[in-house]
Design a protein around this nucleic acid. Sequence first.
RNA 1: GGCGAGGUAGCCAAGUGGUUAGGCAACGGUUUGCAAAACCGUCAUACGCCGGUUCGAGUCCGGUCCUCGCCUCCA
Length: 499
Amino acid sequence: MALVLHDTLAAKEVPFVPSEPGKARIYVCGPTTYDDAHIGHARPCVTYDVLVRFLRSTGVEVTYVRNVTDIDDKIIQRAAQNGESPKELSDRMFLSYTEDMDRLGNLRPDREPKVSETLPEIIELVEKLIARGHAYQVGSDVYFEVSSFPEYGKLSHRNLAEMEAGASERVDDAEQGKKRHPFDFALWKGAKEGEPSWPSPWGPGRPGWHIECSAMSMKELGPTIDLHGGGLDLVFPHHENEIAQSQCATGTCYSRHWMHNGFVQVNKEKMSKSLGNFFRLREAFAKVEPEAIRYALLSVHYRTPFNLEVDLDDEGHLLSFPQFREAENRLEYLYETKARLLELDSAKIDEASSEPAHAEIAEFQARLRSALESDLNTALGLSHVALLLKRINELLDRTKQKKTKISRVAWTAAHEAFRHLAEVLGIGQAEPRFFLERVRDRRAKERGIERSWVEEKLALRNQARAQKDFVQADAVRAELSALGVEILDGTAGTTWRLV
RNA sequence: GGCGAGGUAGCCAAGUGGUUAGGCAACGGUUUGCAAAACCGUCAUACGCCGGUUCGAGUCCGGUCCUCGCCUCCA
């Protein structure tokens, strides 16, 4: 078995075959750093993170490159509004993005090239395209000539004639007049008054949107990469244009595989800045553990739309994200299970027994791997996780009985399964007690419940219980329960959580 | 208009020709001073609609309805 991925260019699932066996060069379109990331931005990041983690876990040496678009109209505009320089804004937002993606449990890419640091390569690429007759200069602008590339449209599976028929309305741009063909696109844009600019053979200006990715991809990974990823909306025109300009410049295949993730939607509509229906990750982080967002995203196949449910109050204020909340509950279960395993009294482990773990524990790695090999089916993978946790709890339940032990073999298998889960899906990486307390304390704070107050109540109740005053003890339970505080009497003492 | 994705039991969501996906909710049981947690069981012979192919279709083919996306900055 080997990894099979849905390939946008082939329009079907194909085996992932890198040009060099055992190595994978991956380029993913990263953020334009003009604002904090929203929940939609988390999806590709988590998706490609799992891809990279998974490949590495199978021994593939991955070079993961994700660019930063730090030269862009939106950055220039927003910076002007804020009264800061485009670079200040971009640097600030890059840090914000990095922090958010870290909190979601993503690995950092191996390299994060910036457009502003790739100007010489971009200019060189544009010159090459002009020299080869695929681009033309108009004043201080340079355009790519789409008609010079017969394969144009192969990625998005459309052709120029069809598109012209449908796109009639929106060509009101002054720019259109300069182009030989409406779908020709800018490789280099001459600077207008007051805009940041860089010198070039065509005068001061800045790169067009598409050329930067070709240049950065080639600079970091060479003319042919193994996989190029991004959001579904980048298929056309961004990636289509990247293929055209890259292939025309190098004469060779630009990317062997094309992978695109589906959107996060709100009320079945795409979450986007322009629709204004977006939620920043930091808003969400205030309501739920970042890892819960990761878990929820992974519970849906990466190409299926993720329809985000949003719970608002009458005035439209954000109350919660029910799916993230549910995912957080699942993570509580996961970390409780992990904590039980790690804290199991060693006297309960039979070193001599060779009794194997249940297949759902022992074969977890193989099952997860098999799920991910099938077009990164993380939803199926998480169903294996659900069974894994159930089996581990069942195993641990056995130790509740006196004189009953579990085998070291089974314990180790369970432990290994957790390790593998964290490595490949990036789930369950935190220290269990730390995670659980953080969730509890955040939920308590949301409801204005003081930790010390709860603990006083618990002390009171335990005193009553010791005296077999169960009426009193149950009164305390009822009082706390009404506030959502759940009391758990365990063998090791009484703990509490918020539901 | 063109191209593409999706419609699966109360809800979420896998599954692409034939034996239990999984989760949530609900209900029963084991356990518990009572609970909760955990585990076991039930919910479930569900697959937008109409035809066709097949011994057999959620899964393939044809048609049709609905939702969404791209074609314009966008993950």
